[in-house]
Design a binder for these strands. Structure first.
Lengths: 107, 107
DNA sequence: TCACAGGTTCGATGATCATCGAACTCGTGC
DNA sequence: GCACGAGTTCGATGATCATCGAACCTGTGA
C-alpha cells in the first residue's frame, strides 16, 4: 500500500441510510455499546470495554455492523485498537437522532 | 362493556422504551407504513392504504408492533378502522427522533 | 524468534421474527 | 336474518441474524 495515505482519508466514511442506522442501534447489545461510547471521553473506548457476557467473536460481529452503518470507526491508540463514536458525522446527516436516543438511555 | 368509556381513555397509550421504538421502525415494511402515515393529512390513513405486496395477516402483524410500541393508534372513522401516527406523543418523549427519520426518508 | 494478548474471520447452530393461509370477529347493508 | 368487506388471531413455515468455537492475523515485549 502507498505510504501517501493521509490520515483523514481513513476516517472519512459514509453514514449509511436511515434504515441501516436504525437496524444497527435496534439491537440491545449494540445499543449498549453506543451508550458506553457516548459516555466516554473523546467518544473513544477500548474494544474490550464495550461488552461483557458475550464472546469475542460475537462482539467483533457487532463492531462490524456498527462500523458498516457509519456509526463508529476503528482507530489505533498506542497500537491498541479502539472504537470511536462518530457523533458529529451522524448528527450532520440525521440531526438529533443519536442525541435523542442516547439521552433516552440514561433517563 | 360499559358505555361510559370516554374517547380520550382509549387514545391514551404509553410510548414504549427507545429500544422498542427503534425495533419497530427498523423494519422496512413498518418504516414505509410510518412514512405514508406521516405524509397523510391528520396523520391518519385507512389500513389497506399502508401496504402492498404483502398479505393481510402480515400487515396486521406489523400494525400490532407499531401500536404496541406506541407509535400508532387505532381509531374508527365512519365504522372503518384507521391507523394514526402519534407524532406529538412520540415527539414529547423522544424529541426529534421521528421527525429526523421521516425527514431522511424523502431525501 | 517466539510467545502472548486482543480482534477478526469463518462455518455452523439456534433463536427470533416476518410471512402466509385459514378460521374468526366486527360493521354495514341488503 | 344473511352475506360481504376489512382486520385480527392463530399455527406453522422460512429467512434472517445473533451466538459460539476454532483458526487466523497483528501488534507488543520478552
Amino acid at each position: 500500500m502507498p505510504d501517501t495515505t493521509p490520515e483523514e482519508l481513513v476516517a472519512v466514511a459514509e453514514v449509511g441510510p436511515v434504515q441501516e442506522v436504525l437496524q444497527a442501534i435496534a439491537d440491545p447489545v449494540r445499543l449498549e455499546m453506543v451508550r458506553r461510547l457516548a459516555a466516554a471521553p473523546d467518544l473513544t473506548v477500548r474494544c474490550s470495554a464495550l461488552y461483557d457476557d458475550i464472546g469475542k467473536s460475537t462482539a467483533s460481529h457487532h463492531f462490524k455492523v456498527l462500523r458498516e452503518s457509519g456509526l463508529t470507526e476503528r482507530l489505533s491508540i498506542e497500537g491498541q485498537p479502539h472504537q470511536r463514536l462518530r457523533l458529529s458525522a451522524v448528527g450532520e446527516r440525521y440531526p438529533g437522532l443519536l442525541d435523542t436516543v442516547i439521552q433516552a438511555l440514561d433517563d
